[in-house]
């Protein structure tokens, strides 16, 4: 008989693993991926392929030659970053820009902090914002001819066909008539925008999968969406439009829920979500950018350590007054 193995308790482990959690997220992204390719065709596929390849390669190179550690590709986190970054880009973006964004996302936003689990800001969003600030024109030019959903808006068809998203149009024409917007088109991806944000229904399917597999909890997505709808209503917008048109769904379900850059406790997560929703709507209404989700999430990422500090779980049996 071999020597008995000795270790401290517990002696059994759940089947959880980082790889499992990450692949759950990847699976949840598949419906949105399908919608993106269906809506934008081959250019979308090219952007996704470039982002994925660059992110994975970049992570492999850094881990192998800078950290001298075993490869971390298999945990799937670089794949998620690549997919999410691609989802945040227009299909018409030059491919080299997508590659640059991927390098920024992995090398600067993730690996420079020490790799998975240590970054402060969501890597994919950092990459996206880097591109948005560096190449504003390319990042806000949308492919033409796909936006049948936008074309249905009365009086805005000219803008739509020249490749504008609904939110861009709305930002430029605050008073425009929204009654004719076809919500069904917004849900099914029949509109213009970044790759991943067009199919709200697909994102909702992903959300249901993530909740069912307990990969994420409801607090962050629900609080973001509820808060965005509330503030949209307060500031005189159309809550449904704010939720469905643009990157809010994508951000709320896949970006803000990133484990590493979101708060730990349920209470903290709700505060985080409410503030993201609020900032998003403020940027959309009062800022010059038509879209505010990325900035809102990155901004709140910075506050996560603070939120963690003030939203401690309450120790069992401790009285509230004892604090």
């Amino acid at each position: 008989m071999n020597n008995l193995t000795v270790s401290l308790s517990p002696h059994i482990h759940s089947r959880n693993s980082i790889t499992r959690e990450m692949w759950n997220v990847i699976i949840a992204l598949i419906p949105a991926l399908a919608v993106a390719i269906w809506t934008f065709g081959l250019p979308a596929l090219a952007v996704i392929a470039v982002c994925l390849a660059t992110c994975v390669l970049c992570e492999w190179l850094i881990v192998r030659f800078l950290f001298h550690r075993p490869s971390t590709i298999a945990d799937g986190s670089a794949i998620i970053t690549g997919l999410l970054l691609a989802f945040n880009l227009p299909a018409s973006i030059p491919l080299w820009m997508a590659a640059v964004g991927s390098v920024v996302a992995i090398a600067i936003a993730k690996m420079s902090f020490g790799g998975l689990g240590r970054n402060i800001w969501n890597p994919a969003l950092t990459g996206r914002v880097f591109l948005l600030i560096s190449f504003p024109a390319a990042m806000t030019t949308w492919p033409e001819g796909v936006a049948s959903g936008v074309a249905h808006i009365s009086g805005a068809s000219a803008h739509a066909n020249s490749g504008a998203t609904l939110l861009t149009t709305l930002n430029a024409h605050p008073g425009m008539d929204l009654d004719s917007v076809n919500i069904l088109n917004l849900l099914t991806g029949n509109m213009n925008g970044s790759l991943g944000e067009v199919g709200s229904l697909a994102i909702i399917i992903g959300l249901i999968y993530l909740l069912a597999t307990k990969t994420i909890k409801w607090q962050i997505p629900v609080s973001i969406l509820a808060s965005a709808a509330f503030f949209s209503f307060i500031f005189g917008g159309n809550p449904l439009l704010d939720l469905l048109a643009g990157g809010l769904m994508l951000g709320a379900v896949f970006m803000a829920t990133d484990y590493v850059t979101s708060p730990m406790t349920a209470k903290g997560q709700i505060i985080y979500g409410i503030l993201i929703g609020m900032i998003t709507i403020i940027i959309r209404r009062f800022g010059s950018y038509p879209e505010g989700v990325s900035f809102a999430i990155l901004l709140m990422n910075s506050f996560v350590p603070l939120i963690n500090r003030y939203c401690r779980p309450r120790v069992f049996g401790e009285r509230r007054a004892a604090k």
Binding site: H13, D75, G117, M264
Partner: peptide, 13 residues
């Protein structure tokens, strides 16, 4: 009975 290798904390809470 063998423990699996330890990964980094991903702050999943």
């Amino acid at each position: 009975s063998e423990r699996k290798p330890t990964g980094p904390c991903i702050r999943c809470a």
